[in-house]
Amino acid sequence: MNKTERLLAIVMELQRSKLRTANELAEILGVSLRTIYRDVQALSESGVPIRGETGLGYSLMEGYFLPPVSFTVEEAVSLLLGADFIEKRFDPTFRASAYSSRRKIEAILSRPIREETHRIQGSIRLLQKNELVTKTREKVNLGIIREAMLEGKKILFTYHKRIAESDGSRITMRTVSPYGLAHDEQNGWLLLAYCDLREDIRHFKVSRISDLTVTSDTFQTPEHFNLQAYQPRDTRNIRVCALFNAEIADKVDEANNYYMETAEFKGDSYHVTFRVRQPEELLSWILGWGADVVVTEPESFKIRVREEIEKMKERY
């Protein structure tokens, strides 16, 4: 951090807090006390109204703030919530940058705006599922994947599939060219990559990736590939129908299953249709509704559900 950046950081820190001691400023900026004393003097000489109170610390004169940008309360809340989201969902590098950005945003807000922003922030909380897993495997993987994308390097990893292959295996090794990352509220972080094994673009849930390494092999993202405009091919060609107890229709809707296509009341039942790549993708979800659901088609899936129920009965 050069002197100009340091002087700006001191002003922003004093804007953010009513009072800061020289020791606190030195610790925050990672410099000596003597440097802080010199910087504060330089700021005072340049016209910044810094007050020094013996035994208490430094503060800015009431009403003074540095306004490189002005924000409304709503704008400030939006930016700070965005920084909070990044701190919770990204890898350590972006998390540190988000933390730094949040402190800078808070520093340039006038006191009334900052206090109102903090009040509103206190009434909003971003929740995340599987927080422990997200903090470990997913965040570590995100950092490695970002590094590989920046360097144009392929990655090698073990992938743990939710649905087993035809041979019963759920674990595969993949070498891919990472094209981009996307975040989905239901699935979390997804890696979009060209898979050498499948010779096509595939999607991988980042939390299901393990033993991730960056290889020495390079790749180039095709010029025609645009992550923002990319739409995956819909390969869900199998139709599954089920009748739910009408009393739990609202719960079925709230579950917002990715494969759900239509839903309507028929008599005293709630008729729902799904489109899937393979019925196994719905098995655990259907079983979770217990006696409140009956699969009507296809017949092969009805038999599969019945077989799973028989296995469950044996265990009990």
Rank of each mutant, 00 (worst) to 15 (best):
L127W: 10
W189D: 08
V133I: 09
M149L: 01
Q128V: 06
I163W: 02
W189R: 00
H183N: 05
G168I: 00
P178M: 07
L127H: 11
E138T: 05
V140L: 02
K135A: 12
Y159P: 02
L142G: 03
R125Y: 13
N130D: 14
L190V: 11
R125W: 04
H160A: 01
K129G: 11
S177R: 13
G188D: 00
V176P: 05
Q186I: 15
S123H: 07
Q128C: 10
R174V: 13
Y159Q: 00
I144H: 10
H160Q: 01
S166H: 04
R208V: 01
T136C: 08
Q128N: 09
L190M: 07
A148C: 11
L156G: 04
D200T: 15
T172I: 13
R174C: 00
R162Q: 11
K129V: 12
Q128I: 03
K205D: 06
A164L: 10
K153C: 01
L150A: 12
S166Y: 02
V140D: 07
S169A: 12
D196H: 15
V206Q: 03
L127A: 08
A193V: 14
N130H: 10
I171V: 11
N187I: 14
K153S: 08
H183Y: 03
G143F: 02
Q128F: 12
T134I: 14
L192H: 15
Q186H: 14
T158L: 10
L197H: 15
I144Y: 10
T175Y: 01
M173Q: 10
V176F: 12
E147K: 10
R146H: 06
M173W: 06
S207Q: 13
E199H: 15
I144L: 15
L192Q: 12
I201E: 02
Q186A: 09
P178G: 06
K154W: 02
